[in-house]
Write a protein that binds this DNA or RNA. Sequence first.
DNA 1: CGATCATATGTAATAACATTACACATCGGT
DNA 2: ACCGATGTGTAATGTTATTACATATGATCG
Lengths: 143, 143
Amino acid sequence: MNAQVDLTRNQALVLQALDGAEGPLSAYTILDKLRDDGFRAPLQVYRALDKLQELGLVHRLESINAFVACCQPHRHDHEMIAFAICGKCGNVDEFSDSMLEERLGTWVRAHRFKPAKTTIEIRGACADCADAERELESPARSN
Amino acid sequence: MNAQVDLTRNQALVLQALDGAEGPLSAYTILDKLRDDGFRAPLQVYRALDKLQELGLVHRLESINAFVACCQPHRHDHEMIAFAICGKCGNVDEFSDSMLEERLGTWVRAHRFKPAKTTIEIRGACADCADAERELESPARSN
DNA sequence: CGATCATATGTAATAACATTACACATCGGT
DNA sequence: ACCGATGTGTAATGTTATTACATATGATCG
Ligand SMILES: [Zn+2]
Ligand SMILES: [Zn+2]
Ligand SMILES: [Zn+2]
Ligand SMILES: [Zn+2]
């Protein structure tokens, strides 16, 4: 599905692991998943992740030290990406918002700051998980 | 300067270390700075940091695993805070922007996401450091 | 072809960051 | 004096990421 052309074996394996996962994975979780494929050391994972991030196929979630496959082959070159991360089920929503980008750009220009990488991550509960939690809290009339 | 009332000895020491620092500090750097004050284990630092964050006196910079003293006694209760972090000199600019907050709030409401903590961090070079770098790159005519 | 260079890999060791577990201390309210 | 909430001291362990060095692979050029 993704432009996996030109990926090396290790890179392809790591990307597959992320693509097949429900939510974000830590580097060491990926390593464990790939033991059977010959992976032995963390560096094999980190190196592949570095390359995949360079190619825009994978994102790192800074606030939880984990990685996700990019949900689209869209060009991230000049886009600012935000993530909504559910702490319950692990679901991650990747989105971009031009007004958000505009707004941060305004601040950056005003302060002559030269941005290299911008992180926007909202941690919380997704709609489904928030609903489930509300049910537990409410005086359940299901007796 | 900060409302240090009610802080325990350990908490006060950690806050002082951060207040006196030029830039963000890692937990282990703080530990080293406080060896002479009797600190021996990481947990002493992490516990103090937890409390200080609860009190809004300290912020954690997720993207660089470091901590900074809050620059103001302002109420962070319902504010979204963003950070511009210079990778060269370590300077950190803490700012909030209601439009930014509004914009993320719009997304969150539209997706019925229940936010717990939001991280906004811009890493790059501050004005001074960007200038200094430009000078090195340009064909210096200062010969 | 053989020399060379850039990129990727394998492996071990180590560094950097953070938490768990348990025992003990301190303080305020009853 | 008792209790519960909060804080502390210490050791051990868990988790995340990098450094260092050797080897391999593949494209390019004379
Ligand atoms: Zn993406
Ligand atoms: Zn969820
Ligand atoms: Zn602050
Ligand atoms: Zn700077």
